[in-house]
Amino acid sequence: MSKTNSKFEWNNPLATVDTVTITFEGETCVVPAGVTVAAAILGHTNDHICKSAAAGEKRTPYCLMGVCFECLVEIDGLYNRQACLEPVYEGMNVKRQNEVIDKTK
């Protein structure tokens, strides 16, 4: 599946461009080559990309230019990647982070 429940679409139809396949939370996403990880996820699902550090609220990217830190993901085992700044590559494995939240708050 290259698209589940996203409210966005690729303006260059997938059939007309080179694609790469990545995994987000175990789901396969086929996306145009060269797009950012944030775009790849937004183009795939309306679900959240990460949770806020303190309260664990669901978030999606706000600024898409590297300043809001609302798109932090784990990419191939590396933490705290800003999805809006990372281009996708074939076989990339993306996971949400901050899924475990601070219980004491």
Binding site: K7, F8, E9, W10, N11, N12, P32, G34, V35, T36, A38, A39, A40, L42, G43, N46, H48, S52, E57, K58, R59, T60, P61, Y62, C63, L64, M65, C84
Partner: peptide, 26 residues
Amino acid sequence: GWTLPGVMTCGGMSNLYKDSSLVPTE
């Protein structure tokens, strides 16, 4: 409500289009 998924900046939308040709359908 500015923290709700779906709220983003105009520049953010512009970036999504510039780098990824992503366009809202809803």
